[in-house]
Structure formats: structure tokens, C-alpha cells
């Protein structure tokens, strides 16, 4: 169980982590990173599954199904789009290939 100040610490540390990851990023990576973080908040699917998994009345189930449907779209779409964007950074050039 996470309560009170412990949650506040988690919020604070996670916020700094996010901030540090992004600082000093080259401009051409802005859009792929936006897309990548869009995929990461697809974790909302886990929450949607929990909400639907504990839903009982028809109203709760309906909203829960909508949540799962939307969140699943977020996850899959976010992944495909990010992958396609990053494919453009593929180093097909022979000399650069060996740096990997």
C-alpha cells in the first residue's frame, strides 16, 4: 500500500527522472520521443483491466470495456507509430552499421 508522503516521494522522483531523460535531446528526436512517451502511458491499459476486472453493474462494465478498448488502442498504436518513426534512423550505411 502506498500512502501519503511515500506516494509524494514516488511522484517527485518519477518527475525528476522524466525531466532528466528529456533534457539535452536533439531536436530531430522530439517527435519520436513524444511518440515513445505516448506509448509508455499506454500502461493505462493495466489500470483499465483492473477497473473492468472489478466492475459489477452494467454501467461500470460498459465504461470499463470502453476504457480497455481505448487503452489497448493507445498501446498498439503508440508502439507501431514509434517504431515506424524510429525506423528512419536505421543506419543502412555500411560504415555506421558496425558501431551498433
Amino acid at each position: 500500500m502506498i500512502t501519503g508522503f511515500l506516494a509524494l516521494y514516488i511522484f517527485m522522483l518519477a518527475a525528476f527522472t522524466g525531466y532528466e531523460i528529456i533534457s539535452r535531446v536533439p531536436v530531430i528526436l522530439h517527435t519520436p520521443l513524444m511518440s515513445g512517451s505516448n506509448f509508455v502511458h499506454g500502461i493505462v491499459l493495466v489500470g483499465a483491466m483492473v477497473a473492468l476486472g472489478h466492475a459489477e453493474t452494467p454501467v461500470e462494465i460498459t465504461i470499463g470495456v470502453i476504457a480497455v478498448l481505448l487503452a489497448a488502442g493507445n498501446v498498439a498504436g503508440g508502439y507501431v507509430v514509434t517504431e515506424r518513426m524510429l525506423e528512419m534512423f536505421k543506419t543502412s550505411k555500411p560504415a555506421a552499421g558496425e558501431k551498433k
Binding site: 518519477a14 525528476f16 522524466g18 502511458h41 489500470g47
Partner: peptide
């Protein structure tokens, strides 16, 4: 929901996204 994965992933994206927006 007391779900740590959501808290951390969401907050990281929240902070990273805010900075990215400014950049």
C-alpha cells in the same frame, strides 16, 4: 488504483512531456 507501474510510468511521461512541450 494503488498501481505503482501506472504511477511511475504516468509521472515520468508527465514530466518528460512537459519539458518536451517547452523544448
Amino acid at each position: 488504483l494503488q498501481n505503482e507501474a501506472m504511477i511511475i510510468a504516468g509521472m515520468v511521461v508527465g514530466a518528460a512531456g512537459t519539458l518536451l512541450t517547452q523544448l
